[in-house]
């Protein structure tokens, strides 16, 4: 079944067409890759899907609902979670609060209940806390629940950010360059980690990544874009042999076969 269906999606910024005429069809449960040179428009696509940018043209259909034009928080509530290319945790808030807050769309109590502290308020706060701690436990992050993200190593921050995205119960998880800035040992861990999440959370993943090792290892289907246009798509094998892809990455060849 198709979970995300993007038709004729275009994003213009003044004279610049960052994404043009994009078609995407993601099946439920898949693990998809999105690659392309710097400035190709990858993050822009994620920004449109998560509701942060309003597309200039085209439609984004998620799980039977057209979501373009919706505000990001309601898109998240519908089941799309994401991480950011340059980690955007709330750095002066504990890791636990970071996880708690991404459940803001479903607190289960009304505006007045924090003030009067009803039974319902306490039981929902407890539910949120338990769920957050459980999630941290799953990622073996329970010991740093009270730490501030800014004091954590980069690799751990990446994990916290993924955990935060998962706290909102997404059906689709968008990962924007999860391996950026990681050491090669961390990258190996990350690959296992993402595979494990995919298998255990019953989730569809779509990821942007420059490190081919990650993409080729994880994704069954990859889309390549350049200057906002799709230049190739297919299985890792097909992509690696595609002459157009090789051309787009010319000068970036090392990275391609790293």
């Amino acid at each position: 079944m198709s979970l995300l269906k993007i038709t004729d999606l275009t994003q213009r910024f003044g004279g610049l067409t960052a994404v043009s005429d994009l078609q995407v069809d993601l099946e439920e449960g898949g693990l998809y890759g999105l690659i392309g040179p710097n400035g190709a428009g990858k993050t822009t696509i994620f920004n449109m899907v998560s509701g942060f940018y309003t597309p200039t043209e085209g439609t984004i259909d998620f799980d039977g609902t057209v979501i373009n034009g919706k505000k990001p928080h309601s898109v998240t509530a519908l089941g799309i979670g994401r991480t950011f290319q340059n980690i955007r945790l709330w750095h002066d808030m504990t890791v636990l609060d970071n996880i708690r807050l991404s459940q803001h769309y479903h607190l289960g109590y009304s505006v007045f209940e924090p003030f009067i502290r009803t039974k319902n308020y306490y039981s929902n706060e407890k539910r949120i806390e338990d769920k957050s701690m459980e999630l941290l436990g799953v990622f073996n992050l329970q010991d740093i629940a009270q730490e501030f993200p800014k004091n954590l190593p980069y690799g751990i921050q990446r994990r916290v950010e993924i955990a935060r995205a998962l706290a909102a119960n997404p059906k689709l998880l968008l990962l924007d360059e999860p391996a950026a800035g990681l050491s090669s040992a961390d990258v190996v861990d990350l690959i296992d980690h993402i595979r494990w999440i995919h298998d255990n959370f019953d989730i569809t993943i779509w990821m942007i990544e420059h490190q081919m090792e990650v993409i080729m290892n994880l994704c069954k289907y990859i889309k390549v874009i350049d200057f906002g246009k799709t230049i190739a798509e297919g299985t890792p094998d097909e992509i690696q042999k595609n002459p157009q892809v090789i051309k787009a990455y010319l000068g970036d060849e090392e990275e391609m076969y790293a």
């Binding site: 998240t76 994401r82 945790l89 803001h104």
Partner: peptide, 19 residues
């Protein structure tokens, strides 16, 4: 705490489900 999230990173707050 949603308002503290806005202070620390409004874009992240909005995308992470804070209205």
């Amino acid at each position: 705490k949603g308002i503290i999230a806005i202070k620390q990173d409004e874009v992240a707050a909005e995308i992470m489900s804070v209205d």
